[in-house]
C-alpha cells in the first residue's frame, strides 16, 4: 500500500509537467479517475489502473483537484483525474415556475449553479432519477432541460 500524506503539486506546473512528460513516454504515469463525489474527501483508498493500492490522507486544509500529482520519482508518477461533472440545465418558463423550482431544489439539497435564467443541478446519480423527481414535483408538467458535461458547464 502506498501512503500519500500530501499533494506533490499540480501537473500543469512547468517543472512537474516536464518530468511527467518524460514518464508518459515510458507509460509510467498511473492516472486515477476519481468520481466527483469523492473529490471532497481528505481520506480515501483507491486502486490505480496499474493495480496499486493507494491510501490518501491529506491534511484538513488540503484537497484533491484535477491534475493533482500524488507521487512522482524517476521511475513513475501517480496523478488524479477528476471525473467529468454532469449538470442538468433547467429553464423555467415563467417566474412562478422558477420560484417553485428554486424552492424544491433547495429542499432537496441539490447542488446548484445559476446561469442567466436557468438553474444548473449537479448530477450525483443517474439523470433519470432527477427527471422522475421533477415529474413528481411538477405533477407531469415539463420543465425544459438539457444535459451538460463539466467543461460545457464550466
Amino acid at each position: 500500500m502506498l501512503h500519500i500524506e500530501s499533494v506533490v503539486g499540480d501537473r500543469a506546473d512547468p517543472a512537474l509537467h516536464r518530468r511527467l512528460h518524460h514518464l508518459e513516454h515510458r507509460h509510467a504515469v498511473d492516472e486515477i479517475v476519481i468520481p466527483r463525489a469523492d473529490m471532497d474527501r481528505r481520506r480515501l483508498r483507491v486502486t490505480t489502473p496499474k493495480g496499486e493500492d493507494v491510501a490518501i490522507a491529506l491534511p484538513r486544509d488540503q484537497k484533491l483537484f484535477d491534475g493533482a500529482v500524488l507521487y512522482i520519482d524517476d521511475e513513475r508518477a501517480i496523478v488524479v483525474r477528476a471525473e467529468v461533472e454532469r449538470w442538468l440545465r433547467l429553464q423555467p418558463s415563467s417566474i412562478a415556475e422558477g420560484i417553485e423550482l428554486g424552492y424544491h431544489a433547495g429542499n432537496l439539497h441539490w447542488r446548484v449553479r445559476f446561469e442567466g435564467e436557468s438553474l444548473l443541478i449537479a448530477l450525483e446519480g443517474p439523470a433519470e432519477a432527477y427527471y422522475a423527481r421533477l415529474d413528481n414535483l411538477f405533477a407531469g408538467r415539463r420543465i425544459r432541460s438539457t444535459l451538460l458535461t463539466g467543461s460545457a458547464a464550466a
Binding site: E5, S6, R42, R43, A57, L58, P59, R60
Partner: peptide, 8 residues
C-alpha cells in the same frame, strides 16, 4: 506535522 486523525 502529519495527516490528521481520520474522521467518520
Amino acid at each position: 506535522p502529519r495527516a490528521s486523525a481520520a474522521r467518520i
